[in-house]
Amino acid sequence: MNRFSWFNATSLTLGFAFLYLPMVILVIYSFNESKLVTVWAGFSTRWYGELLQNDAFLDAAWVTLRVAVFSSTLATVLGTMAAYVLVRAGRFPGRTLFSGMIYAPLVMPEVITGLSLLLLFIGIGLDRGILTIVLAHTTFSMCYVSVVVSSRLVSFDRSLEEAALDLGATPFDAFRLVTLPIIAPAVISGWLLAFTLSLDDLVIASFTSGPSSTTLPIKIFSAVRLGVSPEINALSTILIGIVTIGVITASLVSKRAVIRRQREEQAAFQT
């Protein structure tokens, strides 16, 4: 029975219009000639040119990118270890505290995380800069990574590891040769998640950055506080474009992998 009625069609249309219209408007008006952002004065890529001339933005983008790459890589390693500990290590003293510390940052307000890390860095006399932002971002994004990876580990057939051990692999070999390839998609999406979280973060970076290490969100935030600006529109369009291409590519790649797998399975059945 077809239950997809006009009601569903309407709610989907309105819902997605609500989700996408603001961004579409932003993208369209980034090509506006006028300096008055809300008045359309003809098509132009002028603000993209100006953006590329703006050293402050470019410096901030470079800082942000470096922070994101370092922190997401570190967070992926630590988060995968933490996930493995949560799912596989069994009981050990302080396990409850450990899992609490993994889940707590997920719900902790950013202002608190930022504040507490700042107070720590001041307390131990660590100068604020790229290093402190990396440490801060690693800490909260490793928790996201470990949640993503552990959900994959939970659904993982343990007998595959046992088979590897049975066939003479050391536990480390079993992890490297069997477990890691199977959880790889989760590890990769964990990295991507950590990377985006770091790119996106304003609050924690505001607390933990120093004067020489302004990140792009901090820069955007201070510009945006003064109102809409055409340069920010152009910058937003570029960021939206990168994310859209990234997400669509990722979903196409995974879709192709699924289709190929189905086809191979069918072929295997027919022979």
Partner: peptide, 25 residues
């Protein structure tokens, strides 16, 4: 995917987009 896509887009930019929509002019 259409629901998840905004989630990957910068939070700041999504909030910013509304300034242009809701302001006086």
């Amino acid at each position: 995917m259409l629901v998840i896509l905004p989630f990957w887009t910068s939070f700041l930019i999504r909030v910013y987009a509304w300034i242009g929509i809701l302001s006086g002019e």
